[in-house]
Design a protein around this nucleic acid. Structure first.
Length: 479
DNA sequence: TGAAATGTTGGGGCG
DNA sequence: ACGCCCCAACATTTC
């Protein structure tokens, strides 16, 4: 029996559920196939940095498949046509793939499955990308969880599956394996951010570095995760979000890697526990989107669709470009443009600032993030924004408003992060680096800062906007 | 996975 | 010695 494995956002040979099952069921007669879907590239919020990441991951995948005596078959077009065509051309009895849970992708996959079945080709779909698939945990009354903590507790009762072995044996075949398209051919300009080394080997390298396996970076990553993951200038995070997004790393490989590291060194236990909890937020938001697809269009709680946002386009532009005059906010927004990532603590700060200081619709921020994040994921990004805006299922209370100065002083006390991304403030003393406008004129002079020229004056008064935001939210709830 | 406003307590200065 | 006030430190409530 021959099986076509349809690669999608699982661009790896290791710990790949559908691929491993296909290798098993077919006795290693697996044809590897990637269908590039024009609808995906054409999404209005698609980011060039993500397209580039996918192309990089495909390049490596294609090479490692070639090294195993096969080749990655490629087709460009609607998968409902290209997948059945590829199955027919290669004489496959069945097509296997790992499921996606975004409503549009799930609907597309249903169409592909129907087309395959109509053509007499079998289909098997697998859960792969989450620790716990949607629908696998239910509340006592049979509903789905909308609050994180009970969700997490329920998920903790479900054992994390063992990673699947890397598939080493793939079948030779006659399907076309054209050269990969380039960014330009796909209609994207080279992004301004530096490229993330993409592909399975880079993902594993990042994982090993996070776990401290190289030994070259003492105290790197996991060892500091529990205590320092909230400090944006400290490299205590895994940097694996894009690898999880595009499947260059399997979630079981990651989770078991972290847990095994903690088993070897008990000092890592707290960090490992915390890290898995953060992975469960990713699961949580995927489940919320699956069960409540309306969150893609608006607030989880409909009363918050009535919020009357009063911020201006000029405010939005200042936020996007990192010139609000609040250093921690500007640093984060510039990090996003320069790297395609932003530290999670800072994501919360800039999201609070957009909604509650600039009084701008969280959906504008959501879209901006999607068009610039290399790890941009509908469920996680939407969930994060709804959390910050207070409109979500298990959101921060709407009246929880971050003070960007206090957040800066608490999580970037040394100012290292702000100085990295706002170098024009580098010479300001720690005491003023998060509030340059309160700096004595002489101190500004010595630091070479001219407010309004070398660095913006604060665009809004935080205390004032805080009151306005509270009034805005109260009004929406009262109606 | 806040922050600000408000309330309470207790030590010390001082008449 | 005593009461009063101030205010820092901490706790609680409110947004």
């Amino acid at each position: 029996m021959r099986i076509l494995h349809w690669f999608r956002k699982d661009l790896r040979l290791d710990d790949n559920t559908a691929l491993a099952e296909a290798a098993h069921d077919s006795d290693h007669d697996v044809v590897p196939f990637y269908a590039s879907d024009p609808a995906w590239f054409a999404r209005p919020d698609m980011a060039a940095t993500r397209v580039r990441f996918v192309l990089g991951a495909l390049t490596e995948l294609s090479a490692s498949i070639a090294a195993r005596g096969s080749k990655l078959a490629l087709a460009h077009g609607d998968p409902a046509e290209t997948v059945p065509r590829a199955a027919r051309a290669t004489g496959a009895d069945a097509v296997y793939w790992n499921d996606e849970y975004e409503p549009a992708l799930a609907a597309r996959d249903d169409r592909v499955e129907a087309a395959l079945r109509a053509a007499g080709v079998g289909v098997k779909r697998f859960h792969d990308r989450l620790l716990v698939p949607p629908g696998a945990v239910t509340t006592r009354t049979g509903g789905n969880y909308t609050v994180y903590t009970p969700f997490r507790r329920a998920c903790e009762e479900v054992p994390i599956a063992e990673p699947h072995a890397r598939v080493e044996c793939l079948a030779p075949h006659e399907l076309p394996s054209p050269r990969l398209a380039t960014l330009e051919r796909l209609g994207f300009a080279e992004p301004g951010s530096a490229a993330w080394p993409a592909g399975e080997s880079h993902a594993h390298r990042r994982l090993q570095r996070f776990l401290g396996g190289t030994g070259r970076e003492p105290g790197a990553g996991l060892a500091r995760y529990a205590s320092e993951r909230d400090f944006p200038s400290v490299p205590a995070t895994s940097q694996l979000s894009a690898d999880l997004k595009f499947g260059t790393l399997g979630i079981r490989r990651l989770a078991h890697g972290v847990l095994a590291a903690a088993a070897r060194d008990p000092r890592l236990a707290a960090s490992a526990d915390k890290y898995v909890q953060e992975l469960r937020w990713r699961d949580f938001f995927a489940h919320v989107l699956w069960h409540h697809p309306h969150v893609e269009q608006g607030a989880f709680r409909p009363e918050f669709d009535r919020l009357r946002w009063t911020g201006t386009d000029a405010d939005f532009a200042a936020w996007c470009e990192g010139r609000t005059g609040y250093p921690i906010v500007d640093a984060g927004m510039r990090e996003l443009l320069a790297t395609g990532l932003m530290h999670n603590r800072v994501r919360m700060v800039v999201a609070s600032f957009l909604t509650k200081d600039l009084l701008l619709d969280w959906q504008r921020g959501e879209r901006w993030f999607m068009t610039h994040l290399v790890d941009g994921d509908l469920a996680s990004n939407n969930g994060g924004w709804q959390w910050a805006a207070g409109t979500g299922s298990d959101a921060a209370p709407w009246f929880r408003i971050f003070n960007p100065i206090l957040q800066g002083m608490r999580f970037d006390a040394s100012g290292r992060y702000v100085r990295q991304w706002c170098p024009e403030l580098a010479k300001l003393p720690d005491a003023y680096v998060h509030r340059p406008w309160e700096s004595p004129p002489l101190v500004l002079l010595e630091a070479g800062v001219t407010l309004g020229e070398t660095y913006p004056l604060p665009r809004v008064d935080h205390a004032e906007r805080r009151d306005q935001a509270l009034a805005m939210y109260s009004a929406a709830r009262a109606k």
